[in-house]
Design a protein around this nucleic acid. Structure first.
Lengths: 290, 290
DNA sequence: AATTTCATGCAACAAATGTTTCATGGTCGA
DNA sequence: TCGACCATGAAACATTTGTTGCATGAAATT
């Protein structure tokens, strides 16, 4: 008897399928076609939906070499388990050496980050933008590398809502601001692994104050996402290099600002124009020359 | 109180988490972090692995509005079902107006930015990194929205070269720093249209001082690129929205830091480890829980 | 200080699970 | 045609499941 590479329980099933009795074939096909339900729902449930006898599932499992349905389902479950390792970093690319190692590193980095951007869920951003639009005041917090994201967001939002946006801790110790959060205000916290205590404290303060909490993070399990009304996810680890990537967070911040601006309508537009006029008056920018 | 769109059972859990009793929080975090196991394995199994009481799972489910653990798990199972026809990336593209105008805007923005990244030339970045590696000291300047890029670059470079990197104007008026530029040092200036006078002044000061000038800009004709030893280009206007995109500049900054770090070899690695150890010692980060 | 409330672990419960046994009916070979 | 064999459905089985009641102890309230 030839042992056909047990790559996955599903392929074992498919291989053994033709040599099985008719009823077991039907059940086997049903399992192959609905393997997600097979791992989640109960045997009797499946039997009912497949129009078959519950016992057939146990018999099928035994027919292809398992001790019973339970063991087969466990195998299917493991096979379906989402890979804990990042999907892309499989290409370790440890070229490390060679003339163009640096260029290769950059190219890989850029490609990986480009691939990550379209995977950012847009819907939550739109919802968060509406929350920002409704907020009487907007607080922004980000520490360490995330400070840059926080400042960008602060800058862009202040272009059209200058009086209502500010960074947590900008004008003194964080603690002073933490006590200033109020219901009806929005607090944006940016962070990813490893999470700073400071960001978690801001998130908790926002929560306890009843403010709308918006978390920009790399995982739904991030501490500052707990209790958040909106969680905007990006992939921080998707790119090679010694440090997590921030392009995703930046892209989210910019989208957030753009949509919030769009929601602001003519009022926001007018305020932006005012700001630009003021900057031009102090001649901040180099005049476009010919 | 606004009802924050109960999109997924996981977000319901996340929202309710902080208001839960301690043990239920632990269990809730465990579920959020292991939602796949939550849908496939049994309650008692999970309880054993989480080191909690089985009853806590039932109580958790009830606490967030379900009739019991069974119902919560069913909801999680449905949420995880793979064959879901893409939730909203159906790309309705009924842009400009309609309910999903915002989502369409965001999706377009992200895609445009993703498309822009691979167009960034890698070779100049590698060369600039080598210049940074050789520089005795590194100055970084960016104003307005580019300040965020400057600060990110400053942060990442300081992780492994703490004494040699600083932002222009960080410790006083810019003018003081402008006079400090020396040959053998590197000055990085980030900017795009409309260009600020401040950034141009920094670039000119660097040029006249004989320092190595690295410009991160949106055009070779940018004023601060004049006389620059290295010009790193990105597309600021490639994305829709009211404001130029910074993802390209951020990606460049991160690549620059990564390659400079790689060039630093073991010395850089050691200094990074020192920095991390110091941060861990003052317990900046939330310890990864068990 | 007394009392109520609540969180939490333990143990018992009914329901549901996967499995096995048994009876039936069909098919193939002698 | 008869008997051996096997596929198949139904029912009975022991386990395991999710749930709930109860006792304990801590915290908040009066």
């Amino acid at each position: 008897m030839v042992e056909p590479a047990k790559s996955s329980p599903l392929s074992e099933l498919r291989i053994a399928l033709p040599s099985l009795p008719m009823r077991l074939q039907e059940v086997g096909r049903f399992v192959a076609a609905n393997d997600y339900d097979a791992t989640t729902r109960s045997m009797r449930d499946l039997a009912a939906e497949a129009g078959a006898d519950p016992a057939a599932f146990t018999r099928l499992a035994k027919a292809i070499g398992y001790s019973g349905w339970e063991e087969l389902r466990a195998a299917l479950t493991e096979a379906r388990r989402p890979s804990q390792t990042a999907p892309f970093s499989g290409r370790a690319k440890c070229r490390r050496h060679g003339p163009n190692a640096d260029v290769a590193l950059i190219t890989d980095k850029l490609e990986a980050e480009a691939a990550g951007l379209p995977r950012i869920p847009a819907q939550p951003i739109a919802e968060a933008a509406r929350a920002l639009h409704d907020a009487k005041r907007i607080w922004i917090a980000g520490y360490r590398s995330c400070r840059s994201v926080a400042e960008l967001l602060n800058y862009e939002l202040r272009l059209f809502r200058p009086e209502q946006v500010q960074i947590v801790g900008a004008s003194g110790p964080d603690d002073l601001d933490l006590g200033a959060f109020r219901p009806g205000e929005a607090v944006i916290v940016i962070g990813f692994l490893p999470y700073t205590h400071a960001s978690v404290r801001v998130a908790q303060a926002a929560y306890h104050a009843g403010a709308t909490l918006i978390a920009i993070a790399d995982s739904v399990t991030a501490p500052m996402a707990e209790g958040a009304d909106h969680v905007l996810l990006f992939e921080a680890a998707s790119s090679p290099g010694f440090f997590p990537s921030l392009t995703g967070a930046i892209a989210i911040a910019q989208s957030l600002a753009a949509v919030t601006f769009a929601l602001g309508g003519t009022a926001a537009k007018k305020r932006l124009e005012n700001t630009e006029a003021r900057l031009a008056a102090v001649s901040t920018y180099v005049s476009e020359k010919g």
